[in-house]
Simulated assay, not measured.
Amino acid sequence: MFDLYGGGWTFAWVGPRQHEDWRRDVAAVMALKVTDPRRWKSVNYAPEINENRSGTGSPFMPWSPEQLGESLYEIGRRSAAQLLVALKGEFFQAAGIRDFESRKESLFKSSEEILSRFDPDSLFFTNASEAYGNRDADLLNPDTEWSCLSVYTTDCGLVVVSDAEVGVFWAFFED
């Protein structure tokens, strides 16, 4: 996992699934109101900015479940695995990862390890507009826009929803 989340402006947090409407659980994870039910290490490497526009220690703006649903697009597992890798790169592209070709296998192994935590029937969502209407979008080097959910000027991420847990995996950029 630390191949993908060993520093940089990243966030990786999992919380319990407690509501029928999974968006409520995702909002709780983003607000740092829950802990990982398996006690895995959570990562919040999002640096403070001059003005914390969220009003909390969270890198995310306070979102209602309805607002989250409008900003997230469903994707397939392959796209989710690609996105976890791409989030490590500059501007959320694998092409921006130093020595990507020589590290590709290791990075995808880490991506699959993260996704294996969640059951096979899990759902995956992203804020990358390239996924709007295309569950199988190629998200390794997306040429896209993002519905930003954080206090930063640009962000991109993956939400994973299973029957028992929700995960939020995100990267940020401030220009």
Rank of each mutant, 00 (worst) to 15 (best):
M61R: 08
R78K: 13
R23E: 04
V43C: 15
V29E: 13
N52P: 08
R98N: 15
P37I: 10
S54N: 09
D155T: 00
A12T: 07
N127W: 04
S102G: 04
I97A: 13
D36Q: 15
G96L: 08
A128N: 06
D175S: 01
R98Q: 15
W22H: 13
A46P: 14
S111Y: 02
W9E: 09
R17E: 09
M30C: 08
V85L: 06
L140M: 06
S147T: 11
S54D: 13
P37L: 00
K33T: 05
P62T: 10
R98V: 15
S129M: 06
W146S: 12
A137Y: 00
A164V: 06
D138A: 13
L115F: 01
L107Q: 15
A27G: 04
A86G: 07
D175I: 11
V151E: 06
L32D: 09
Y45L: 12
N134D: 14
E51A: 02
I114L: 03
L87R: 07
V160T: 03
T35R: 02
Q67P: 02
E105Q: 09
S110W: 09
Y5W: 15
F60M: 10
D138F: 08
S110N: 12
G96N: 13
A164P: 07
V43F: 15
D121Q: 12
A31W: 00
F125L: 01
T56F: 02
A31S: 05
F60Y: 06
D25A: 11
H19G: 03
L140H: 07
A27S: 08
I49A: 03
A12Q: 09
R98H: 11
E70C: 02
L107S: 13
W22T: 07
E90M: 09
I97K: 15
Q18H: 08
A27N: 10
E70R: 05
L72R: 00
P65Y: 09
L84F: 01
E101C: 11
R98S: 15
G96P: 14
L149D: 10
F60A: 10
E90W: 12
S102C: 08
Y45Q: 15
A80P: 03
R77P: 03
V160L: 00
D36F: 01
E74I: 07
P120A: 01
A94G: 07
I114M: 08
R39H: 08
Q67I: 03
F92E: 14
R77S: 02
K109D: 13
W13Y: 05
R38K: 12
